[in-house]
Design a binder for these strands. Structure first.
Length: 459
RNA sequence: GAGGUUGUAGCUCAGCUGGUUAGAGCGCCUGAUUGUGGUUCAGGAGGUCGCGGGUUCGAACCCCGUCUCCCUCCCCA
């Protein structure tokens, strides 16, 4: 006999947690629908050829790969053995050993779906998707190996209205969840490219961002040190001066960068797009958009080409709870170029953790049962069955304690489940047809007909 | 991938420089009350001290290995 355990980084969700999670899911789902998004689900596993190379080198390493079934009876045993050993030594993938993996996010499977169904889809296509994803990360606070993402994406339009609507949805959803103090950080891939270009290190925005991103953690000197370690010249670092000093309003930041990007058409375009997004959000009439232009924001996912978003709840431990951006060529890598998309994703598990830390969950009762019937003996239990059916048909969630246990035990059960009403049925009740309805909160009890009980319990 | 930390009853945790039979609170079960829960009172059950090995007359405690939990870095939802 052994104690069962859960795989690292995975969790069970009990009734209480599920009640809370469903509240989050329902809030997100209804908002997505309000904005015209349609549901989609894709398989847990995808072919590795679909997943590999979409998330950068780090991402590839975090993919959960699925071992081919039937390996033991492989025709070419020696070759399989060799490939298997090789795959253990390094991040190497052989079709002989594995050709499928668990999805890493919902955006890439979505792009795959769009390409495969391009002829049936009406563009612009707006879909939402709420499913688990898997990453072979090392678990820690707010980080799991299996977690749920709630994505909303639009493909087939370049309109910045989509970006603006994303900001609106973020505000809407977090507002409904009761999360008030948060920041929606935005940046633009073109701004990052222009930054690298302007300081004389074109194409180096990757390492540049990784370093700058740590500004608030390790300070300016730390960043400069790291940049120099990453091979940036002193000259290049000196040119970053304005970036370090950026810490104003959206328009102030834009103005500063405008000067820096005087010679960069790319940079100008990125700034123009961001300004347009902000202007559109304002046009929607959103009072406080929580938007903040953050030049150091660099979403790791390599497929973003336009605006990038990240939502951080302030004064909590957890990192970002949502992220997204525009990707111009994701479907291109599957053979359908020219379809631009924008999307974003909520991390439900992190939202849950944040809400728990901020104590935003009401004292919900996981049970939805309104009334429980108690029969004193087998005859009474039988007598209760048509009544139970009557209650349920009246739309009242009800149950009957299935064992003929002692009254005390049955009441105890109802009490610990938080069931508000109980109907007691014994010989007296069966004779008169008047049942004893007990209010579990007040303890009051009265003899009533089934019709009267339905009336009271339903209210 | 690098580093740190934790593991004792269902849960939260005590357990002294190694020393008889490993404790508490909560929860659970039974009874006071054979037709009445949430309060109270009385009693009871429940532990391979994560796992494996070692040191010792003797190990929950010391040593080695291993797994696990949580955390930091990297990266990310």
């Amino acid at each position: 006999m052994q104690k069962p355990t859960l795989p690292k980084g995975t969790r069970d969700f009990g009734p209480v947690q599920m009640t809370r999670r469903n509240f989050i899911f329902d809030t997100i789902k209804s908002t997505f629908q309000q904005f015209g998004f349609l549901p989609l689900e894709t398989p847990a596993m995808e072919n590795l050829s679909v997943l590999m190379g979409k998330y950068g080198e780090e991402g590839d390493q975090l993919l959960f790969k699925i071992l081919n079934n039937g390996l033991y009876e492989a025709k070419n045993k020696e070759a399989v053995k060799g490939a298997f050993e090789k795959s253990l030594q390094q991040a190497y993938t052989s079709d002989l050993v594995t050709e499928r993996g668990l999805r890493y996010d919902l955006t890439v499977p979505f792009a795959r779906y769009v390409v495969m169904n391009r002829n049936e889809i009406v563009f612009p296509f707006k879909r939402y998707q709420i499913q688990p994803v898997w990453r072979a990360d090392r678990p820690q606070k707010g980080r799991y190996r299996e977690f749920y993402q709630c994505d909303a994406d639009v493909v087939g339009t370049n309109s910045l209205l989509c970006e603006a609507e994303i900001v609106c949805m973020m505000n809407e959803i977090l507002g409904k969840l009761g999360i008030a103090d948060f920041t929606i950080k935005v940046n633009h891939r073109k701004v990052l490219s222009a930054l690298a270009e302007v300081i004389g290190a074109p194409g180096q925005e990757g390492p540049l961002c990784v370093a700058i991103d740590k500004l608030d953690k390790i300070g300016r000197t730390g960043v400069e040190k790291e940049l120099s370690e990453r091979g940036f010249s002193a000259e290049a670092i000196r040119k970053l001066e304005p970036v370090f000093n950026i810490n104003g309003s959206f328009t102030e930041n834009t103005a500063q960068l405008q000067t820096l990007f005087a010679q960069s058409a790319t940079g100008q375009q990125g700034l123009a797009e961001l300004s347009e997004v902000v202007s559109l959000v304002e046009a929607f009439g959103v009072q406080n958009s929580h938007l903040q232009f953050d030049v150091t924001l660099a979403r790791g996912l390599s497929y973003y080409t336009g605006a990038i978003f990240e939502v951080k709840v302030n004064n909590v431990q957890i990192g970002s709870i949502s992220g997204g951006g525009r990707y111009d060529n994701l479907t291109g890598s599957f053979g359908l170029p020219g379809v631009s998309g924008v999307g974003f994703s909520f991390g439900v598990d992190r939202i849950y953790d944040v809400m728990e830390e901020l104590q935003l969950f009401p004292q919900w009762n996981a049970t939805t049962t309104r009334v429980m019937l108690i029969g004193f003996d087998a005859a009474a239990q039988r007598y209760a069955l048509p009544i139970l059916r009557q209650l349920r048909q009246a739309g009242i969630n009800s149950e009957l304690y299935p064992d003929s246990a002692k009254l005390k035990k049955q009441l105890d059960y109802a009490n610990s489940k938080g069931i508000p009403y109980v109907v007691l049925i014994g010989s007296n009740e069966m004779e008169t047809g008047k049942l004893a309805l007990k209010n579990m909160t007040t303890g009051e009890q009265q003899a009533l007909s089934v019709t009267e009980i339905i009336k009271i319990v339903a209210g």
